[in-house]
């Protein structure tokens, strides 16, 4: 687990800090130096709502190193309200209740930890909408 890498990407992981392309107006997450839509290089920072819907999902029965304690867990491609797609875990949901198109919202959770003594990595996951609020 790379301490500097996790530190560099903390604002993306904690709060989905994203970019808007000044040329074409598309929202970009994760941030890039060159817009994937129009190849322009000028972007501004923006905050995402954290809302989206499930584009696809899978339940992981065989977890990669560092994630064994959470298996089985559900991964999803989430289409965010602002446009970008994101790969993330679902949480606080039973596998059998997950459906494509289901509305979800971002929460900050423990992603993994480097053994008992190393760092704890926190980041975004998605759960079913707790409630529609005003």
């Amino acid at each position: 687990m790379s301490i500097p890498r996790n530190w560099r990407t903390r604002q993306q992981r904690y709060s989905l800090k994203a970019e808007v392309c000044n040329a074409c107006g598309n929202t970009i997450f994760p941030p890039r130096d060159v817009c994937p839509h129009c190849a322009e290089q000028k972007q501004s920072w923006t905050n995402l709502s954290g809302r989206g819907e499930i584009y696809s999902f899978t339940t992981m029965y065989s977890a990669p190193a560092g994630f064994e304690e959470y298996a089985p867990y559900t991964m999803a491609l989430v289409k965010l309200a602002e446009g970008p797609m994101i790969t993330a875990q679902l949480t606080d949901v039973d596998t059998e209740d997950v459906k494509i198109g289901m509305p979800v919202e971002m929460v900050t959770r423990k992603l993994s930890q480097d053994g008992d003594e190393g760092q704890i990595l926190y980041g975004y996951k998605f759960r079913p909408m707790l409630r529609q609020v005003a």
Binding site: T91, D92, V107, T108, R109, K110, Y122
Partner: peptide, 13 residues
């Protein structure tokens, strides 16, 4: 708390 929750994650919410 669930497996991926702790005082930090709950505090953030």
């Amino acid at each position: 708390a669930g497996l991926d929750e702790d005082t930090l994650s709950m505090s953030v919410e």
